[in-house]
Design a binder for these strands. Structure first.
Length: 566
RNA sequence: GUCUCAGUAGCUCAGCUGGAUAGAGCAACAGCCUUCUAAGCUGUGGGUCGGGGGUUCGAAUCCCUCCUGAGACGCCA
């Protein structure tokens, strides 16, 4: 629809001698399809032109009407309502999709740009819980979206592989751990020990001191501490990688916090050279009071660095080594202040790219209305959620389509799709209370619904092929049914949707779009015979094929698989 | 206490760069499978858009204020 908007804006801006871009952004989609396909409210022109909106609308309608490029143009109140030539848009949209679905979505605005995205970033020796799901799936979707818009993207898993919690885990393991038991199920057992540590530490605060000592040993390169630490990491990574495989999540780099251990002194030195560090309560900080923020601690009073220092080092590394001009952090909203501080310090360090640092924040995942707590062992394992979702999918397949080939693979795709989509569709700053009943619901606005619609389109195309029909590029459009038009109309908005999703770094817009297309397709499917229609068969097959491609692409952007049957 | 973010139908949310009668899904109820996958489609009921002010031709959308909830607020990340 962007093309049509541009065309209208051009005529209007010529006629009223107003900037084309201003007019273009004012063109909107009427609330009611009866009114038209596109509309231009003229109220805002009234002041500058010193005429009534109704008058202007009438003039504009006359101008657009005279071009002969629109099916109808009407001035209603202060609005100009335009109906498009359905046949032309139909052909245009369908052909673009048949040729290359990516073209419908993108103008490749990001060519030449590089973004480094930090997402997922779980902690070593802790369970991969549903709490990590949001960062993981949102980050992965943003990776796909940016790539679609032409960006070069570097995906980074900033693993929590350093810090005093390793002292705690080591102490707990040495005190209460059984190597055999831990080897059976390392991450869960180590986590149990970690929880036990916190329980015991309530009564015996000296445990904390022991933990600190063990972490100090680790920092000093003690062989025993290092061996255990590395073991924790390799076992955790095994679990994480299996989660990522199932979720279809990939990274270009696994660079944990420890990777920056030797890169932080340079940050401290530079800050000192630039006179940005001041002493405060024994620590060295960057004063940010001019920006209404608390100081950013760089060196703690015990001389050690802290996460802000680490994030500064990591930011420099991502820019310098990966050539990233844009840094994106998909991290919970509770770290908003931290990132504002880090970004401000980067600016003070005169990094011109500091203004391109973005924190993609999201609300907290809760369970039974309560915050999940790793310390108290209150977590929902993602593994368990995926298992339940896949079981549910398998159950529904047995019930509805027992003869389906590849049942296990489809159940996996659908179950996991349900989990991913559920987290993506309503992405906002809202906190989410995790509920199995929501994730396991496959009706309505869900991943399985979108996948089902795609499979349905595939099924029609299979049936067509069996009867000797193929979707062709050169088809005649023999009139466009309202339901066909609704579908085309939705598909035509792909580019605007992707561009806004990229600009806002918001995958939920894509999810919404996919749902809208699905609804329009299912309505079309219900209202319009495809195979049995003589005259319209060609155009409807082409439309079905085009929709199939658009849905597959949209699902791909979100990180969902698109089975061809289910 | 200060700052940030949220508050739209019973529930979950969309709409928020101001525009036409506030939209979906779930749940409830009522229809639609001898015909391309009913994980679908259609319809009904359901709203002081947290309250109150203001700006505007026009406010769910912008500003102020209050209420409620969540989070952050220096040596964890």
């Amino acid at each position: 629809m962007l093309q049509q908007k541009t065309a209208i804006a051009k005529f209007v801006s010529d006629a009223l001698s107003l900037p084309e871009a201003d007019v273009s952004t004012m063109i909107e989609y009427p609330p009611n399809p009866e009114l038209g396909d596109l509309a231009l409210p003229c109220f805002r022109f009234a002041k500058t032109l010193r005429r009534s909106p109704q008058d202007i609308a009438k003039d504009v309608a006359g101008v657009l009407s005279a071009t002969g490029q629109f099916a109808s143009v009407e001035a209603v109140g202060g609005y100009v309502n335009v109906k498009l030539q359905r046949e032309l848009v139909f052909k245009d949209v369908v052909r673009t999709l048949q040729e290359d679905p990516e073209k419908l979505f993108s103008r490749k605005r990001g060519v030449g740009r590089t973004a480094a995205i930090d997402y997922s970033s779980p902690n070593i020796a802790k369970p991969f819980s549903v709490g990590h799901l949001r960062s993981t799936v949102i980050g992965q979707a943003i990776v796909h979206m940016l790539k679609a818009d032409g960006w070069k993207v570097v995906g980074i898993n900033h693993l929590g592989d350093w810090g005093t919690q390793f002292g705690k885990t080591i102490v707990a393991y040495l005190k209460w751990g059984d190597e055999e038991v831990v080897r059976q199920n390392p991450v869960r057992e180590l986590f149990k020990l970690y929880v036990k540590f916190h329980e015991e530490a309530q009564a015996n605060p000296e445990l904390e001191e022991e933990a600190r000592e063990w972490f100090k040993k680790l920092e000093d390169g003690d062989p025993e501490a290092t061996r255990l630490w590395q073991w924790f990491i390799s076992e955790s990574l095994k679990v994480f990688r299996s989660m990522y495989d199932r979720l279809g999540v990939t990274f270009d780099h696994y660079l944990g916090e420890s990777f920056y251990n030797d890169k932080m002194q340079a940050v401290v030195d530079e800050l000192r050279d630039k006179n940005l560090l001041v002493e405060s309560e024994g620590a060295e900080v960057v004063d940010l009071s001019a920006w209404n923020m608390p100081p950013c601690i760089i060196v703690k009073s015990d001389g050690a660095t802290i996460y802000a220092t680490r994030d500064l080092a990591a930011a420099n590394y991502r820019h310098d080594e990966f050539g990233a001009d844009t840094l994106i952090y998909v991290v919970g909203a509770e770290q908003t202040l931290h990132f504002s501080q880090v970004f401000k310090v980067l600016e003070l360090m005169e990094r011109p790219w500091a203004k391109n640092c973005k924190h993609v924040a999201f609300g907290m995942m809760k369970y039974n209305g309560e915050r999940m707590s790793t310390r108290r062992g209150k977590v929902v394992y993602l593994e368990d959620v995926l298992e339940k979702a896949v079981d549910e999918a398998r159950k529904i397949i047995e019930e509805k389509n027992p003869n389906l080939a590849d049942k296990d693979a489809v159940a996996e795709a659908v179950g996991i799709g349900a989990v991913i989509f559920n987290d993506l569709k309503s992405y906002r700053m809202h906190d989410v209370d995790f509920r199995f009943e929501d994730v396991l619901n496959f009706d309505g606005e869900t991943g399985p619904y979108a996948q089902y619609t795609h499979a349905r389109a595939c099924s029609v195309l299979r049936k067509a092929e069996e009867s000797g029909f193929q979707p062709a590029d050169d088809f005649q459009v023999m009139g466009v049914h309202d339901s066909e038009w609704r579908l085309i109309y939705q598909l035509g908005q792909a580019q605007e949707v992707l561009e806004r999703a990229v600009d806002d770094l918001d995958p939920s817009l894509i999810a919404r779009f996919v749902l809208d297309v699905c609804h329009a397709f299912n309505r079309f499917y219900h209202d319009c015979p495809i195979l049995s229609a003589e005259a319209e068969r060609a155009q409807r097959l082409a439309l079905t094929n085009a929709t199939r491609k658009a849905l597959a692409y949209g699902l791909h952007l979100l990180g969902l698989k698109a089975p061809t049957a289910m």
